[in-house]
């Protein structure tokens, strides 16, 4: 096994009754890198994080964090990790400052060190102005930031972020991404779970896609996207007979051949270059008299990844087949 690995997971199994939440997972995360654990609800992402952060004991398999076994050396593991769960675990009645001070002291820091570190993190997470207000008054985004700040208080070597942006509005989400990127530059090893491909794409060095408790694909974001396909233009026409003419007009903009689907009156064209290509395409069609019902620029999302890897939608619960 690689000595530089911050997280090593071998054949991890955890069952709840009949459900095998983890069905033999292997993972390896190098120090100072970010692994994105990508999967739909119920795929086993949260269970994996709970095992790695010592909350849950695995039924079989081994997991080590900086070389420490999570089952047999739980206390030592707890001293080097930070955990931010799916629900912002902050005490509503304590102020932001008091929350951080408390967690720092429970990390066995002296009260003075805990206070100094709390002030430093509040500043860094843009919460200094709200430091003296009970967390009850915080917005969702502020609570998440406070929660992450709490998990960073003892400068963890490994940080677990379980769906850090779920439920946040787009602006808070973008802000959260920037905060997480800042952590990476500090050299923290991060395991991040997410349902969003764009989030994994932006934050993770490597991605493991999991479904039904198994890893069904792994690689960099580019490698996964190469499997799934990149962005594409989609046109839906009023009349299917116009499809060949549309293809003649827009195909030169694409990076591959367009595909036509007569029953849905749809043309799909792989492209690169984003909205500029879309505008260009619309210019070309403008005087053609082709009646367009719908047009859009589509990027691959989790559903596309799942469609490609498993042949089913991420929200379905049909049995997954392990790809060859």
């Amino acid at each position: 096994m690689n000595v530089t690995a911050a997280i090593e997971v071998e054949g991890l199994v955890k069952a709840y009754g009949e459900t095998r939440a983890l069905d033999g997972i292997d993972l390896e995360v190098e120090q100072g890198t970010v692994l994105g654990l990508l999967g739909p609800n119920g795929a086993g992402k949260t269970t994996a994080v709970r095992v790695l952060s010592t909350l849950v004991k695995p039924d079989a398999g081994r997991a080590r964090v900086v070389g420490l076994d999570v089952a047999t050396q739980a206390d030592a593991v707890r001293a080097v990790i930070g955990l931010t769960g799916q629900y912002a675990a902050v005490d509503e009645y304590l102020t932001g400052f008091e929350n951080l001070e408390m967690v720092g002291q429970l990390f066995q820091m002296s009260r003075r060190d805990a206070r100094a570190r709390a002030a430093e993190l509040l500043e860094r997470f843009d919460l200094t102005g709200a430091a003296k207000r009970p967390a009850k008054t915080y917005s969702g985004g502020m609570r998440r930031r406070l929660d992450i700040a709490a998990s960073l208080i003892a400068r963890p070597r490994v940080l677990f972020l379980d769906e850090p942006t779920t439920g946040l509005d787009p602006r808070s989400r973008l802000g959260m991404w920037e905060f997480i990127e800042g952590l990476v530059t500090d050299g923290t090893t991060i395991l991040l779970t997410t349902q969003y491909l764009d989030e994994a794409d932006r934050l993770a060095d490597r991605i493991a896609v999991i479904d039904h408790g198994r890893v069904i694909a792994r690689g960099t974001a580019d490698e996964l996207k190469a499997q799934v396909g990149g962005e594409r233009l989609e046109f839906t026409l009023a009349v299917a007979a116009d499809l060949p003419r549309l293809r003649g007009l827009v195909e030169p903009l694409g990076i591959e051949a367009a595909s036509l689907d007569e029953p849905t009156r749809r043309l799909t064209l792989p492209v690169s270059g984003g909205t500029a290509v879309l505008r260009n395409a619309l210019d070309r069609i403008a005087d053609s008299g082709i009646a367009i019902v719908d047009v859009g620029l589509r990027r691959p999302d989790l559903d596309d990844v799942f469609m490609t890897l498993t042949g089913h939608e991420s929200t379905e619960t049909t049995t997954t087949q392990e790809p060859a």
């Binding site: 952060s53 909350l55 707890r78 769960g85 675990a89 967690v103 429970l106 990390f107 709490a150």
Partner: peptide, 11 residues
């Protein structure tokens, strides 16, 4: 509220 989870993850 997940606070017990947080406490359980602390040394």
């Amino acid at each position: 509220k997940g606070l017990i989870d947080r406490f359980r993850s602390l040394p």
